Computed example of a mutant assay.
Amino acid sequence: MPKVDFRLNAIVDVDAIGGDKDLGYLALEAARGGATIIQYRDKNSPTRKMVERARAIHAALKGTGIPLLVNDRIDVALVACVEGVHVGREDMLVADIRKLLGPDAIIGLTVKNEADAQAAIEADIDYACIGGLFETPAKHNPDGPIGFDGFARLAAIIRVAKPDLPVGAIAGLDLARIPPAIAAGADGVAIISAIFRQPDPRNAARILREAVDQSLKAMA
């Protein structure tokens, strides 16, 4: 059984949401609404502030059973004692991360092209997240959007070698794009704006989670 339930990955992105917000509260609302994994992403804050925020989010999620991952920063994840990290092609090698965080840590890997898909096959990861599918204001993608067809192509490469590895979709996804993302082979979706830029993040997460579950059921 996969270590990670990737059906709804709610990304607490400071640049997109705003560092003045109560990130712990927002993460908890997303978890209560149905997020199955929370990721903290912060590209510009000082390390000390990142550790403080990671600890605050982790404390808010205590008792929910929902894991918290830190994007890119293995040092922050280690010091804040969260459940894992999400990394990309330019970050620390997965083998080195595993040495630092141990066998129980959750490690996710971004996949943008065929080389990344091969890296996902060879690495000791717990899930792969393919994208970006569409343009999004939250993060510039120099490779350009791959769309549903590109996602399906990369997901198929991974599935051949690792059929049980959870594979998620990311970037520009909303309620309307969930069914075609699942139809293209996704086990779930990673979301920022469609949860955290909504008036009621808990309800937004609930609606998105229901859409994921219904789409997965339709594909079964």
Rank of each mutant, 00 (worst) to 15 (best):
D15F: 08
A54R: 03
Y25K: 15
A190K: 04
N141G: 03
N141Q: 13
I157E: 00
L175P: 01
G185V: 06
R32P: 13
P2G: 05
G188S: 01
K99R: 12
A156T: 05
V51S: 00
I37R: 11
V85H: 02
L154A: 06
I182G: 00
E52I: 12
N9H: 15
E210P: 09
I17M: 05
A119L: 13
Q198P: 10
R177Q: 04
A183W: 00
T110C: 14
G131Q: 06
G108E: 08
E122D: 14
P166Q: 04
E122A: 13
H86I: 13
G132A: 15
A171G: 05
G33F: 04
G147W: 06
L26R: 09
I182Q: 02
A194E: 00
G34L: 08
N71H: 08
F134L: 07
K139Q: 10
P46R: 12
D143C: 11
G18H: 09
A117V: 07
V167N: 05
I130R: 05
E90S: 14
G63Q: 00
V85C: 06
L208V: 03
D164R: 07
A59L: 12
V167W: 02
M1G: 14
A218S: 14
R159S: 01
I157G: 06
R177D: 04
Q214S: 13
D187N: 13
I192F: 03
A119S: 14
G24R: 10
A30N: 05
A10N: 06
L68G: 09
G84L: 14
K139H: 09
I158D: 00
I182S: 04
L78S: 13
A183Q: 10
I191S: 09
A77R: 09
P163V: 02
A120M: 02
I106Q: 08
V4H: 02
A60W: 09
L78E: 08
A186T: 05
A77I: 15
R89G: 05
H86G: 09
A120E: 07
P145F: 10
V51L: 13
G19F: 13
I38K: 13
I191R: 09
A190G: 14
P201D: 00
A220H: 11
M1N: 12
D126M: 04
L78T: 11
I11D: 00
A171P: 04
S45L: 12
E122T: 15
I207R: 13
L8P: 06
D75S: 05
V4M: 11
L23K: 11
I121N: 05
L133A: 12
V51F: 10
K62F: 14
E83S: 06
I170T: 01
G63I: 01
V70E: 01
S45R: 14
R98E: 04
A184W: 04
R55H: 07
A220I: 15
R32G: 15
R32T: 05
L8G: 06
A211K: 11
G33M: 02
L23E: 00
A220P: 07
G168R: 02
D75I: 07
H58T: 03
P179K: 10
I38M: 08
A190I: 08
T136H: 07
P179S: 07
L208T: 02
I17R: 01
I37E: 08
D15C: 11
D143S: 14
L61N: 01
A16F: 14
V212W: 03
L173N: 07
